[in-house]
Structures are given as C-alpha cells and as structure tokens.
Nucleic acid binder design. Structure first.
Lengths: 231, 231
DNA sequence: AGTCATTAAAAGTATGACCATTTGCTTCGG
DNA sequence: CCGAAGCAAATGGTCATACTTTTAATGACT
C-alpha cells in the first residue's frame, strides 16, 4: 500500500512502532537523532515526520522535539494506521472496532444498494454468492476469502455512498486477517453463506429491508464469532 | 484545525483547490512551478505535497510531475479533506455522504452507549438535553448548536468504540454547517429536541433498543430535512 | 516497422548554513 | 529571599544549491 522512497522506510519503521505502543505516548524524538539512526538526511526525516503528523500520531514543537500524541488524538480512520494496527500488538482492539463499524455500516449499505445498485453490480453479487457457496463447500479458503471480500466491497460500492465505498478495502483487510490467523472454520458455515445469497437476492429484487436484515445477520454473526475467539 | 508553517499555507491553498475540482483530476503540477508560485523553497513544497499524497489527493512520479488522482482514490475519511469539501463546491455531496454515515453509525453508537456509558456521561447527556430544550425554545441558535454537537459527541464517545468517538468532530462540522448556512428553522423543532431527551433517558436507564430507535429517528429526520433543502 | 541506446526532464536526496521560537537559567533589582 | 527581566542554548523551520536516480521520449540503427 505504501512504498515510497526513503521517507517510506522511516514510516514503515516508526509508524508501526508508535501504533503498537512500543514508542509510548509522550515519547520524544528529535530530528537529528532520527537522521543518525536511519542514516538519512534531514529532508527525508522531515517528510516522514510530516506524514506521521498528518495522521495525528505525533506533534512537532520547537525547542521540544517530536512528541508522540495520545492515542485518542490519532486519526483512527486512516487506512495506513489501520493496517499498522492490524499487523501489530493491538490487532484485537482494532478488529473489535472495525467489527462494530461493520455492524453499523454494512446493513445500511446493503439497504441502499438494493435501491441504487446497477445491473452489473446485481449480476456480480449473484455470481459472487454462488462462488462463495462452491468454494466454501470445497474448503478452498483462499478463493472463498477473495469472493467474500469482493462481495462486501461490491455491496459497499453499490450503496452509492462514496464513504461507504471506501470501507471496502478496510473490510477486506479484516476478512484477510481473519483467514490468515486461522480464525475461520475449515469450511465456512453454510448458514453464513446462505445469508450472502439472501443479500444478493434481496439487492437484485430491490428489497431494501430484506437486504439490510440479512446483512445485519452476517456482520453481527461475524462480530460474535470474533468476540468468542478473542479471549 | 491545520495551521502549520509554510507547508500549511500551500496546503490551505492547494488542498481546497483540488478538493473543489478547480484543479481537475489528472492535472499535473511541478515542484519548480509551485516553488515560484508560492515563493518558497523546494523543502516546503515537498512537505506540502507529501501531505496531499498521504490523503491520496495526488501522486508524484519522476519525469512526470505531481498528478491529481481521481476522486475515487481520495481518502474520504480524512478530516482535513472533509473540512475542505464542506467549505467548498461539493458541500451538498459531502453533506449527503455524511448524513448517510450518521444514519448508519449514530443509532448503533447510541445502543452501545446505553450499555457502556459511565455515570458522568449519562449525567452529561441529561443535562445537555435539558439545555437543548431551553435554548431551543429561546431561539438561541448558537448555544443550541453547541449543546447539540456536544450531545452527539458525547453519545459517540460513550459508545466505547474509538472509531465512533472520532466521528464526533465530523458530526459537529455537519451541524455547524447546517446552522451557518441557515438550513435550520429559527426555533428547532420541539419534536427533534424531545427525541434527544428520549435518547438521554434511554441511555441513562440502559435501554439500548430505545436509545437506538430514538437516535435513528433523529438522524433519519436530519437526513430527510437535508435532502429536502438540497434541491 | 520494430528494437535498442541515448538524452533530457523531473522528482528524490544530501548538505550546510541560517532563521525563529521556545524554554530554562541566570542575573539583577526590589 | 523572591520575582521579574533578559540572556543563552536547544531544537525545529526554511533556504539555496548541487548531485543522483528514474523514466518518458526521442532518434538511430537494424
């Protein structure tokens, strides 16, 4: 997602360290120190710091240094930050947050999609639900994941709301994390897959209420499973 | 929200211009050109560009320049970008997007708040609802706005979900925009205010379902009013 | 016409100097 | 002894310039 020159290297090192709490709130970095530590020029350090600053991870003050801001200030919707946290120590907390967000957003998106989806999207959802059924039965978790993520992204897209649409990538990250960390049963539950078929059906027929209800069942189910696993 | 040195000046100029479409998708900027145009050094230009880049507004490529990315790539959850769009040409679209987001998120947040709010937050909500009633009757729109925004921020905070909590500032921006642009009746509707009292009551007594329902009525009402006005 | 080498344009990086601001300390006066 | 004024050092902020690397475009040679 983020591969850009030398500042990128600093980011890829500092960002996760801050996100994971390894570099604690209130810790102070100095430009000169970073220059030496990474053996790069001031220019590069400053650009990396600027990016951290624009995520509200740090604040830079003269005569003081670059201080790590309290977590409550962080721009928790920043996709890069989300990725770092998903990869790091507070995966569980991040997954729970995203789980709640999904419960709020995806049913609404499904309802809107039933009204706004174009023909292509409706076809696509049907096809994806079918694929999920088949790859699920076959136990092909990789393919299943791809289709699952694609399904949810398509629904979010079809909602016609740009902000919902942008959560597609985030949802994919959540789903991927789930399979990669073996939080999935070997064969996805037939019931969950059936709910996806219901969502596709409802969106195709333009039944907003049914789409919303079925999607709510999916995401609340996912959240419950998640809560069950994270103990 | 964002006032930082010279790069900040560039940002405050370029960002809104891009966000409003004044600088169109695919347009190409060059560092040297920006240096001259704003009479600043390369360092400053590069840092400003870095920030635009981290919002996915532009992409920088060697031998080509800094190109404005398609809107679909933009990080639409970035608070700075939201502010720019709210202030600029596509206010309406942005307000609609945020309205839908509120409809999705705030009822869920209210439901969670009924479970997770601490004593202080419950007291605060009750007090704010009372204030809204009084300032609403008095027609003091400024004070009403403050309490309204505070109310919603508190509910989002009390949900216990950091991502929801962070939408507080955004919701405030939406509400402020509404009053500032005279999309509010002179005296806020008594019914809307009553719904706020209901939310406070439900959260205080721990009734998640009632809190969710009342909040849903508030935000769907707001969205309908918005849609009615934006024609 | 197609392929490969050449060239030039633009971003990326480095360096060193200087500026501006903030904080802490010191000194002076009461 | 205390407080205020002012001084000094530390640190980020800005600048100018030169060098490096990537890559699109051009043109030559098959």
């Amino acid at each position: 997602m983020d591969i850009q020159g030398l500042p990128g290297r600093l980011l890829a090192d500092l960002g996760p360290a801050i996100a994971s709490g390894e570099i604690a709130e209130g810790a102070v970095l100095r430009i000169e120190e970073l220059e030496e530590r990474f053996d790069v020029s001031r220019t590069v350090v400053r650009e990396a710091v600027r990016m951290l600053e624009s995520m509200q991870l740090v604040a830079s003050r003269r005569r003081v240094g670059i201080t790590v801001r309290p977590r409550s200030d962080w721009d928790v919707f920043n996709p890069t930050l989300i990725a770092w946290r998903l990869a790091g120590a507070d995966r569980p907390a991040q997954l729970r947050s995203l789980g709640s967000l999904r419960v709020a957003v995806e049913p609404a998106a499904a309802g809107l999609a039933a009204v706004h989806a174009d023909d292509d999207q409706r076809r696509r959802l049907g096809a994806l639900a079918t694929e999920m059924t088949m790859t699920g039965r076959a136990g092909d978790l990789d393919a299943f994941l791809r289709h699952d993520a694609d399904f949810h992204a398509t629904v979010l897209q079809a909602s016609g709301n740009e902000m919902f649409a942008h959560l597609g990538a985030t949802v994919e990250a959540v789903l991927r994390g789930r399979t990669e960390h073996h939080l999935m049963p070997h064969h996805p539950e037939e019931y969950a897959v059936q709910l996806h078929r219901e969502v596709a059906e409802a969106i195709t027929t333009g039944d907003a209420t049914a789409a919303e209800r079925a999607m709510r069942a999916i995401v609340t189910g996912a959240l419950e499973e998640l809560d069950a696993v994270l103990d």
